[in-house]
Design a protein around this nucleic acid. Structure first.
Lengths: 141, 141
DNA sequence: CTAGAACGATTCTAATTGCAATCATTTGAG
DNA sequence: CTCAAATGATTGCAATTAGAATCGTTCTAG
């Protein structure tokens, strides 16, 4: 006999695989577009998440990576002239990452490219909303 | 004015962040449990996916990683005596990865630990099913 | 049959990532 | 006020990962 918690555990495992697979698909999609702009996937992710000036820690959280990696990525973007580290107003420990005009322009180009052939395109708008609600309930913020 | 495809693109970006975040949560959850058994996160993922004997390529696909990494992980598991590479019946190129009794036992222990405090626990069974359907529609198999 | 393409696994290398330690700054308990 | 703990960023190092090249096997067009 198959107990209820066994099937639950199985669904749970299936979901892990699906979520991981979709995350990899999204990353691959990002990688190809970023690469066309001379960026790594991580640099592309950083650019995508920099919707406004933010601290390095906040960028790391939005990228779901360690701050040390965000530092590494920010270094590269800074070298390429796409962002600057400004002193944070009101907290001398923190730095504010600010896109340069070139960085902002590159970001727009990247976003345009990302919206084409998105891995999430097979889903209708209502489905995307439903997915967002479900994920938001599971993700720890 | 905000056009329709702009809000769609924004939802799309939000979803990318949520999916990536959840994937990282799942991996972190797996990492702690695997670590308690003396395994790396990847080894844990391999064990989780080895529901039956399969080729290295199939394992790599289920783990959403490159075959070279699956080789690496299988090497470690084999060294530790948890799996064996058997000749594949009917295809001399392929090898069949088979869990040893110790490996199968370890897998059961890991699965038990993984079902506790799963990151997906906040979702009710119906929600998990809904999530599974949505993801299955987006993921390329 | 028989090349040539495709496939499965492996190796090697380079790049990415996480983790622990460090430094400067800030916060808060007493 | 003051000192210990916490925070933000960075560095160095180790481990993981992806990507290209290689080797043996299998498939297939002609």
């Amino acid at each position: 006999m198959t107990t209820e918690h066994e099937t639950r555990a199985q669904t749970d495992r299936e979901l892990c695989g699906l979520i991981n697979g979709l995350a990899k698909q999204i990353e691959a999609h990002l990688r190809t577009r970023a690469s066309a702009l001379g960026l790594t996937a991580s640099q592309g992710a950083a650019l995508r998440e920099l919707t406004r000036p933010m601290t390095l820690r906040e960028l790391a959280e939005r990228m779901s990576c360690e701050p040390s990696n965000a530092t590494f990525v920010a270094d590269r973007l800074e070298e390429q002239g796409y962002l600057e580290r400004h002193p944070h107003p009101g907290n001398r420990r923190a730095k504010q990452l600010v896109l340069t005009p070139e960085g902002a322009e590159l970001r727009e180009r990247l976003l345009g490219m990302l919206s084409e052939d998105s891995p999430l395109a097979p889903l209708a708008s209502e489905e995307q909303d439903a997915l967002r609600r479900l994920l938001a309930r599971a993700v720890i913020r």
